[in-house]
Design a protein around this nucleic acid. Structure first.
Lengths: 349, 349
DNA sequence: ATGAAAGCGCTAACAT
DNA sequence: ATGTTAGCGCTTTCAT
């Protein structure tokens, strides 16, 4: 490799300009695809760029443009262990997170922007995020919050930085968000259970104060009332398999003759299925079970889980689109997109 | 609120200096915690920083220091759908990925560096990553590769940028990596199966050409030979539940009287369990099943899965430590850390 | 259409 | 111990 004795400094615009025989400004224009450049000159410059292996320096560009080309993918969640301890979070292990990452990456990748992963689990971390945002380290933020009553959406809104939430925030705030029709999904589940002839239906709700949990629960209750079951016993779970199992056991004790279960997510439905099997209940014969999400876990259940599908990847892609649009035009007003859920009938109900 | 469409310019060092009545250099020293600053002056400056709400501009700092404070978390995987199609990847939905993220975040967070998520699924994306690395957009890279014979480790090594791999690369390259004792884990599984009295054992291997798959398979075969079973029928799976189920069905057809199964990961073991149940085989009575990973899925299995535990979070944290050390001191030679696997006995074997 | 030159905000020599 | 100053590499008026 013909590199001289000089420490191999990366080629700069200056260098390319020298090689091409034109000014930095012209090379910059070519790099940034500005139209007004003579085709012949452009060609010469492009060759020089290729020859030198030039790549623009992000920091320098950032410094002048005020843009970084990176957005924050923020997961906001209360800390479970004392500060200083290891990071314990079930969010990342939940396939839901992975689906969000896939969707966001799919949309961001082609636009050449990458998400910076930021975990916010304390007030300090929150302040730091806000500071970084103000200071322009990221151009915007996609927020996934599982912190009940999370103040972050409001703070983001008042910071004025481009931000889009994955699911509505608990407290109303003027921020864009992408969500699924939780109530509608719950209604789908209620209708199916009811049509199957279930008359003593129960539900395993998600963590309290999370809008998604609340909406699924309310929606389900209202719909079941419409189907002639005015009271739906409910136990709160934590969106994990273990939590779903425990909730199911309590429900079984509370309503021994239950014949239908609606779990607020697939992982809890899976736990419910396991608990039901442990208690010798036949599914769907004696008890019908419906989950929510249509996560990969739904297929790993026995019997395969009937569930309310949430197009997470598409939703995440929409989050990315909305965010990018706001980074390009900060003046855009907040907007929201609600996706339709769909009932996926398998064997558990 | 009162904020105009123009984001108010952030306070700069200059401004803080003016407010404090000292020079930019002194303020910079305070910000960067340089010792040689008069305590009294430091206090004045600190108040000025608080009053102005100053936050250092990363880009400017980066431009002069050549550091960004961000590292790349790269997932390298061959593309499954044509370029232009959506991003289809099972990697992110695998709890394994989430555990890696948790581990890395836990180590990086306190050091205030954040991972930039980068998906590499084409030669173009690979070149871009390398360019970004050269150009200093990230200070280093943590690589998770599920691309058999991935050339990226070698390219990373020759790029000279700090890089650490999660698991050894297929082709030997002078790069640091963190891994688990695959052969040892496989040996543990073989020993347990054998001690239980299994005599017709089979294995569901991971994708070919991945060192991890190969090592688990070889290690298992060698160990079983030592236990008196010289030939271990094997079918290759793709690390998914569905893949494990299909492999199990083929194995059942091939070796109808099998009495033990070692799956190269928990997801495939889960699939195997499901298939076994569908075929009316009792686990662990008629067939004992052991997985690998000890992922959350292991507990969601029925019966709960006996498996070889891989301390993924700890390993990921070590990846982060090794990487950070190399960012701080680029002269450090490549090193590798191998974690010990452990047999976790539950009910499936 | 192209070039010259002025910074963007910061750190790090070098002076004092 | 503190201040002065010279850039880091780039985009962007403003001239030409």
């Amino acid at each position: 490799m013909g590199t001289g004795p000089q420490p191999a400094r990366r080629p700069t615009l200056e260098r390319v300009a020298k090689v091409a025989g034109f000014s930095r400004a012209t090379v910059s224009r070519v790099v940034n695809r500005v139209e007004s450049v003579d085709p012949d000159i452009r060609e010469v410059v492009e060759r020089a760029i290729a020859d030198t292996g030039y790549v623009p320096n992000r920091a320098a560009r950032s410094l002048v443009t005020g843009r970084t080309g990176a957005v924050g993918l923020v997961v906001s969640e209360p800390r479970r262990v004392p500060v200083g301890g290891p990071l314990v979070s079930s969010v990342y292990a939940d396939p839901f997170f992975g689906r969000i990452v896939s969707g966001i990456l799919g949309e961001l990748g082609p636009r050449r922007v990458h998400p910076l992963l930021i975990h916010v689990d304390s007030v300090a971390a929150r302040d730091e995020l806000l500071a970084r945002l103000r200071q322009g380290e990221v151009d915007g933020v996609a927020l996934v919050s599982v912190w009940p009553d999370d103040p972050l959406p409001e703070l983001l809104a008042s910071s004025g930085a481009p931000a889009v939430l994955f699911t509505r925030s608990a407290r109303p705030a003027p921020v864009s968000y992408v969500d699924v029709g939780h109530r509608q999904g719950a209604r789908l589940a209620a209708g199916h259970l009811s049509a199957r002839g279930c008359r003593r239906v129960v539900t395993i709700a998600g963590p309290e104060h999370l809008p998604a949990s609340q909406d699924r629960l309310d929606g389900f209750r209202v719909a079941m009332a419409g189907h002639g079951q005015p009271v739906v016993p409910s136990v709160t779970g934590d969106f994990t398999v273990a939590g779903g199992g425990e909730a199911m056991i309590r429900l079984l004790a509370q309503v021994p003759d239950l014949d239908g279960v609606f779990a607020a997510n697939d992982l809890m439905a899976q736990g419910a299925l396991l608990a039901l099997a442990d208690h010798g209940r036949q599914v769907p014969g004696e008890v019908a079970v419906i989950g929510f999400d249509d996560s990969p876990a739904a297929l790993a259940c026995r019997p395969p889980l009937t569930t309310v599908r949430q197009p997470v990847e598409d939703m995440a892609a929409e989050v990315a689109r909305l965010l990018l649009a706001r980074v390009d035009d900060p003046g855009l007003p907040p907007s929201s997109v609600i996706f339709e859920p769909a009932l996926v009938v398998r064997e558990s109900a």
